[in-house]
Design a protein around this nucleic acid. Structure first.
Lengths: 234, 234
DNA sequence: CGGCAATTTGACTATCCTCAACAGGGGTGG
DNA sequence: CCACCCCTGTTGAGGATAGTCAAATTGCCG
């Protein structure tokens, strides 16, 4: 029995394309790995040597300029795919935001396996197309939105994604009071939104003062007025 | 004989994965279409009904906020793929920047054909992964670079991509004097960089005054000091 | 040559960044 | 168990970058 049978993302990750026998073969070339918060899995600019599925936790993809400015270019959660198959260097580093568990493969092994299993490649293609859509939506935020719009949009996107990552894909009650535990520090939120930490902090407290959100702790946000937040997101 | 035999992007577009017989079958479901500059091929938010290969010219992918702010989220040239296969709405409009020629398919037809031809899906996957890499690099520009860095980076990326699109993939002499004809208006450059038209204009004239570029006409840029431009791009 | 749209230039302003000081809270060690 | 410390986050003041509004200029097309 392959350990995949017990995998919590078995039916949501790209592995869902495989039948039990194929899954066994894939399992044979992968190994699960646990990362502490802050631990890096892939470094920016290195030759792409591993790819992985996220089983649990959250990781950031980010690039840094020579002079130290950082931009987070993606965040992945359970069931998402990490890495750059089929040649090339990885243009961004991958670092755990929370404690995380991934199912990692050597890139060469994965490439060969994928090419032999078109169903898997198809899933990967769908996932990549979706990620590209999401990334392009984020570009509108980075290029054209104000600080207040950025922060509001960020919170909305986060509740939606976390809800999806936790399986409740069917129903998502929008006008309710939501609660989120951020997998980010303020600095990381800033790096995601293209702002400074101070500006992010000011926007958070402004939203709190206006009664749109509450901030029970540094890592927690309660959305008290969902429609108000939508209005802020422009 | 399929018209693909004469196609100038035959060996660079995703069609390169197909043998002559398969190509015939693909050709049967596609039709070439010519677009004038400014003409739209896909509208933002509509159900994805067509996909296409670019044969000639340049097109922009862009999203617009309700209040009219626009962000260009991608630019495609000859041999690039357009559209969103496998369900979903298109999150951005596609509009010709120059006169353009595309090879268009009904999305349903293309989906079915692609699923039956893993080689084609593989090419599409590689292309999509590459596009995702490029898009993520652009996020660093949007989120973390200053106006002067944005404009310099834009010019460098453009000469590189146009050189690649014109086939000279092997050799690209960096330190030489380069000349580019922009497929963009100033407004479109602004929408690409997340700036205003005035700021773009000021940066162009500054680079000109500093002898780094020359501006023979509104649509033409000559790079006089490549290294200087690289230095500006940070 | 005139008209029109795109671009440039100028003056002023607002937003966000920078630098700096302060506050809070979670963990450690006494 | 409490006090202290360090890290993260918040708040404040001032300044710089890019945006806004307005006018002048260019160059393209009939």
């Amino acid at each position: 029995m392959s350990s995949c049978d017990l995998c919590v993302v078995r039916n949501r990750a790209i592995c869902a394309a495989l039948d039990p026998e194929e899954l066994n073969a894939l399992n044979a070339i992968g190994r699960t790995r646990t990362l502490k918060a802050g631990e890096a899995l892939i470094w920016e600019g290195e030759d792409s040597v591993i790819v992985a599925n996220v089983i649990e936790g959250a990781l950031k993809l980010s690039t840094i300029t020579e002079d130290g400015r950082e931009q987070i270019v993606g965040v992945v959660f359970a069931s998402d795919f990490i890495g750059r198959p089929f040649g090339g260097k990885s243009g961004h580093g991958v670092t755990a935001l929370t404690e995380a568990k991934v199912c990692a493969f050597s890139r060469a092994d994965f490439d060969a396996f994928a090419r032999a299993h078109p169903q898997l490649e198809h899933k990967l293609l769908e996932r990549t197309l979706g990620e590209l859509d999401r990334t392009r939506r984020w570009m509108l935020l980075l290029g054209r939105k104000s600080a207040s719009e950025k922060v509001a949009s960020f919170l909305l996107e986060l509740v939606e994604r976390l809800a999806a990552a936790n399986g409740c894909a069917i129903e998502f009650e929008k006008p309710a009071v939501h609660h989120v535990t951020l997998p980010f520090t303020r600095q990381q939120v800033a790096d995601l939104l293209g702002l400074t930490i101070e500006t992010v902090s000011r926007q958070f407290t402004r939203l709190k003062n206006e009664g749109i959100i509450d901030l029970p702790s540094r890592r927690d946000v309660t959305i008290l007025d969902y429609d108000g937040l939508v209005a802020e997101a422009a």
